[in-house]
Design a protein around this nucleic acid. Structure first.
Lengths: 238, 238
DNA sequence: CAGCAATAAATGTCTATACATAATTGCCCA
DNA sequence: TGGGCAATTATGTATAGACATTTATTGCTG
């Protein structure tokens, strides 16, 4: 009997009636006044519940008009993009990283690099392999803008892959993932110790901090060794 | 000069200091008491701002201990789960669907079906191919619980694939996607007119309505023909 | 009947207060 | 020294009231 707080109970009451289809998009929700007498509580309590549903995108609220069930625009789900070392540790596997190559390039001389990362200037380029229990699971190519992250030039990535280093040191405001499938090519197949053409999950990610591109990464996970999980749960809470 | 409400100003103040890196993961945020004297307002106002940041996952708040900048474990991103017909129409391609097989099975006789969908009873099983401009792009296997969706038994899916029909008719409360890569097997390769072993993006999705499983679907997208996009923007707000 | 103005109804924000709950800190005693 | 209890502190929840803002409705007027 941990009895939820009242505002959460009001929230989940309405939420479940929306999600179950009992309340359809466009339907009107009782006014705060009505709900406060129905639940026998103060208006702030009802307001907290409805504001949360509004913030979660389940309700549209307009002054004087009332609260209405929002019509869903896009079906969006939460995708947990994992940090590989963290994720493997959680599974009880031993994580390893081997740096295959590390060089500094310049978008003015190597155009295709600028195209990938989407910025100008000097760029740190690394290639490496992620291991789980000494078995290769992923190949990684990474570009890091040295204009945005000059400190990274002094890192050797002996103990920590560039991605984890960046995650710990560099805050970012926006990112975009592109998820697809592809076959391993000659270079990646050799690094991952699989045959050419082996299916791989491909994750490409660009990360920005306030309009400035920080890094581009392309990871190839050997089919079956790794999967992404995306959830849509009733709410963003948990 | 519409001057934001105070609680939003407090929120964005702190939020921008987190996102800019001025406040790092693990750093302590001033207590509500301190913030209320700093902004010259009541505690509820500060509380509203901090609670919102907490709900957004930017803060960890613990009683007695205080509020701390959350350390991003797995970064949650928004994944737009596509409805294939809608998505292709948006791209200006002509969508098509061919039903290859349709049967009704029972989890009590076919155990592996019950295992996939995670429920008991009679199940509608369909196999089909999605086309873009008459070219196959995806193979789909779908299981639908007839206990949860009896109406679907009378559908023939001549005009509309089962997924779109479900999306339009059946509300759901929870879903989970599992995204990986795999090679086409004999059956799927023949249906997609590719050679066996061709890399494919695999999306498996289970959908529930209030603890009752509605449907399981497994889609195989031919590598290169389709990609998922996931975005993360600074805040969950619009 | 059209257009405009007043009214009322709903949400939005904020205050000041109260008590509840959890966790840290430190003190006391074995 | 160390274990356990109590005091303290910060957050969590809730109340009752006030005023602001937006906008649908109503009613008045030409």
């Amino acid at each position: 009997m941990t009895s939820l707080p009242l505002h959460e109970r009001i929230r989940t009451d309405i939420e479940s009636r929306i999600l179950s289809g009992e309340l359809k998009p466009g339907d009107k929700i009782p006014s705060e006044k009505e709900l406060m007498s129905r639940y026998g509580c103060a208006r702030m309590t009802v307001n907290k519940a409805l504001s949360a549903l509004n913030a979660a995108g389940l309700l549209d609220r307009r002054k004087r008009a009332g609260s209405y069930v929002a019509r869903p625009r896009t079906v969006a789900m939460m995708l947990d993009v994992p940090d590989l070392p963290t994720e493997l540790a959680r599974r009880g596997q031993i994580y390893g990283f081997r740096l295959l190559d590390r060089r500094i390039s310049d978008t003015r001389r190597w155009r295709e690099i600028g195209k990938k990362i989407g910025c100008e200037g000097r760029v740190l380029v690394t290639h490496g392999v992620h291991f789980a229990d000494d078995v290769p699971v992923a190949y990684e190519e990474r570009l890091v803008s040295l204009a945005a992250v000059p400190e990274i030039e002094s890192q050797d990535f002996a103990n920590e892959p560039p991605g984890s280093w960046l995650l710990r040191h560099i805050p970012w405001t926006e990112a975009e993932n592109c998820i697809g499938a592809t076959g391993a090519n000659a270079v990646t197949a050799r690094a991952l110790k699989v045959s050419i053409g082996t299916p791989c999950l491909s994750v490409e990610r660009r990360t920005w901090r306030a309009a400035e591109c920080i890094t581009f990464v392309r990871q190839l996970y050997i089919a079956g060794s790794y999967e992404l999980i995306a959830r849509f749960g009733s709410t963003g809470r948990g």
